[in-house]
Design a protein around this nucleic acid. Sequence first.
DNA 1: AAAAAAG
Length: 524
Amino acid sequence: MPTTVPSADPFSAAPPQLRAALARQGFTSLTAVQRAVLDAESAGRDLRISSQTGSGKTVALGLLLAPSLVTEGAARTAARRPAGPAALLIAPTRELAVQVGAELRWLYADLSGVAVAVVTGGTDPVRERSTLERGPAFVVGTPGRLLDHIRRGALDVSGVAHVVLDEADQMLDMGFREDLDAIVDHLPAERRAHLVSATFPPAVRALAGRFQPNALHVEGTRLGAANEDIAHVAHLVRPTDRYATLVNLLLRSLGQRTLVFVRRRVDATEVAERLTEDGFSAAAFSGELSQVQRTRTLHAFRNGTLQALISTDVAARGIDIPGISSVVHLDLPTDGATYTHRSGRTGRAGQKGLSVLLVPTTEHRRVEQLFARAPFELSWQPPPTAAEVRKAHTKRTRRRLHGLLDASADPQREESGGDVVEATTPGSGDPPLDKHREYAKRLLEERDATEVVAALLALSEPPLPRDPIAIEAVRASGPRERDRRPPRHRGDDGRRRSHQKPRGAPRKGKRFDKKTHASRSQRP
DNA sequence: AAAAAAG
């Protein structure tokens, strides 16, 4: 959230035509990365923008490009050149492209003649084609479809003045390499190229040189700075208890949105199906789904119809869904960067968030290595027990009761809560307690007050979708029984002298690297 | 090593 700065015009650094849009969107000041991008030094340079997720990088970019979009657009209209876009933004997933496009649209709402088009796979190419024919100044898209339009002549990128790679570290990764090169081959040589990413590990920086021989590095929030709103918790569980732990976690946070990450598409589908059978409101999200399904599912998660979304890493980056109270890593992330991106889906816009790692005992050591240099504290805790889950449920019911009582005492007061999934709060209409008041008086005359309240509490506690599951706690550093090797020799005190060989050497480039993330000792 | 991205 932008912090308020007492100033005549908090947006004085922004292009004048965009200030009204910023105010309409509820901005009260520019974020660090936005101010940094608008700094005079940035003029005319290729930028390498690194900043924490959710820090307003897209808007920063929009602010940067707006003036030249207006100028280029006008120049090309005057010259009667074919109306290809002046700016191109390439994103690694379809949903991200859509989201970025939407953000640029509200930002450019007052810029007449500057339209934003989004082109992605999974949608009707003919409709996109006709959108492109209208000559949008800014085109946002995913690599495959962009290239498709370019090759078919539907998209003329010869007039592109700015090309932007969003989530640049991933875009420069192997999988996107070919398409990206092919697109860039069509761009004019004199274009400016901007890379946007949370992190720029050495491997990415090496590749980045091909796009930006002489880039200016712009840092919004300090590289690797931790989001203080996110708590990081690890539960050590037996591999067979992972699903049970997930069930307990979901029961504990019933009524709140949880994003669950798994490794493979098939896992997403299977876990979602199993959760649904267990009475949860859950769905899978992965590249296995049709685009229609993907959009529909994400919408259902956004509007609160779904409590849990079980996703592959397709949703790990950039996706902004308000109100995700926790992220669960059912499968461990492959590396530090993936962990950071996944976790960044919670704790957004100043809200508190929880990131929970389910660590199979077999992976204990690897996880400790992975997080040894993380810029935050990973808190190892026993998984939630069945008793804790039930207690949380009772507490939740009592909180709703207090909400009702407070609302009844003071109707002006906003209902507290934050429960987004279940219809836990009565709809606005008649004051909810009115029709019960007469009977309540009679009941209290006839019965013992404590008994009446206790009975009502019992009645008001909704049934859980399913019973919480007993999970056996695992000792934090104990090797599994079958991993234990016979002691080689014992000392006089009978204790083992030799320890087993560390399993698995640290993997190169997989950890929270000093180059990509600040280490803990560098924390302010 | 998997996922994503073009049908």
